[in-house]
Design a protein around this nucleic acid. Structure first.
Lengths: 208, 208
DNA sequence: AATTAGATTAAACGCATGTTTAAATCATGC
DNA sequence: GCATGATTTAAACATGCGTTTAATCTAATT
């Protein structure tokens, strides 16, 4: 009755909690295995290396998130008029789906994504590009259609600014939420941050 | 004739180059002292610790940047109409002043700033807040005046999104510039990135 | 020229990391 | 119920880090 969850799952659960709280580099395998209640060596036994573990943690979310996002993009594509803000709003559906993995899945995934890009995780970028590059290119094509007034260079940079704003909001997220809470005396949820983010990035992208 | 530059300056120069390229945590004192051509122990002799060295590297730029920014804000304040984009454009003057420290000063400073926020450099945030908090509060007040349609919460989040976009653009800067170059077949300077950034953040901030 | 305070040096310290080893334990199929 | 392969375990390994030590060198002062 002690161990109903496999060692792999125990490691993944502990790792995603710590990774999303402190970042990949800041989290040691000793922390993870202690939190998971398993032996230190079992990470390398089951996953091969820390890098592979990081990838496995991300994959658990990406394989759910990406197909649902692609589905949303295809729906959007069939509409006559393509509005920027509506495109971004469609991210909320694949995000919500992540509760299947974990009740806090959406928050965790966004923070992991943030760390993946703010720390230099070359192997993660490569992995994402290889596995889900098509979805991201699809998104880019639709954003171009919604903003025909922007040239290639403007679009390129603004997309990266958007990524930066989103990533930063998540990585600094918990600290910021706490500041916001003490400043405004009301409860702030991670969901609220996205609702704040969407009009900002839409406005920034559309700007002439 | 061998050593015309003091050991301190040699360390600062090597450190800022490596810090701005790879980040604070990713750069070891052994790398820095080797690059500077000085002994490993001299960092701790002259600066006391790695943390203090990081602070010294930042300070060299901040003591120039911040007063000139404050000067610009005061000029802006005297104008009848306060436009968001014009406020952000005024950042270009204090930035340009940083060529006094180093020909590449503006680029280096922005990248350092990016790492300072994306890595968890609590002591740096505290230092900046203590030494230059007044200037930043001044900026906030002017942005509020230029955007009276935004409430406190919107302003709070959008400022952090802006910070994220700026920081991310700098930290991922070199990699992004290289991608942009290969994609558009034209030379991209760090200055161009700022010119791209200003309309984006202005549009995002002003959005209803 | 001797003294002395400051600067530089090579070496070691203590600690934390990811990884590997080899033995012990467990579980499963015959 | 035993043999076998998969898993778990404690311990050690190799490496890199920031920091400290104590000896040596340098240069200015008396």
């Amino acid at each position: 009755m002690a161990a109903r969850i496999s060692t792999q799952k125990k490691i993944l659960n502990a790792a995603e909690m710590l990774f999303s709280r402190d970042g990949f580099e800041q989290t040691s395998l000793r922390q993870i295995t202690q939190e998971a209640g398993v032996n230190l060596a079992s990470v390398n036994y089951h996953f091969g290396s820390k890098k592979a573990l990081i990838q496995a943690v991300m994959a658990r979310y990406l394989v759910i998130f990406m197909p649902v996002l692609e589905e949303q993009l295809q729906q959007a594509e069939q509409q006559s008029e393509l509005k920027t803000e509506e495109l971004f709003k469609r991210f909320k559906i694949p995000l919500a789906k992540l509760t299947e993995v974990n009740k806090q899945g959406p928050d965790i995934f966004l923070r992991l994504l943030g760390f993946a890009y703010s720390e230099i995780q070359g192997h993660l970028r490569k992995y994402t590009q290889q596995e889900f590059g098509g979805v991201l290119q699809h998104l880019l094509a639709l954003l171009k259609r919604a903003n025909p007034h922007l040239d290639e260079q403007q679009m390129f940079w603004r997309l990266h600014f958007i990524l930066g704003a989103a990533v930063f909001a998540q990585v600094s997220g918990q600290a910021l939420i706490e500041i916001a809470q003490s400043e405004f005396n009301e409860k702030v949820e991670a969901q609220d941050v996205i609702d704040q983010l969407i009009p900002f990035v839409s406005g920034g992208l559309e700007e002439a």
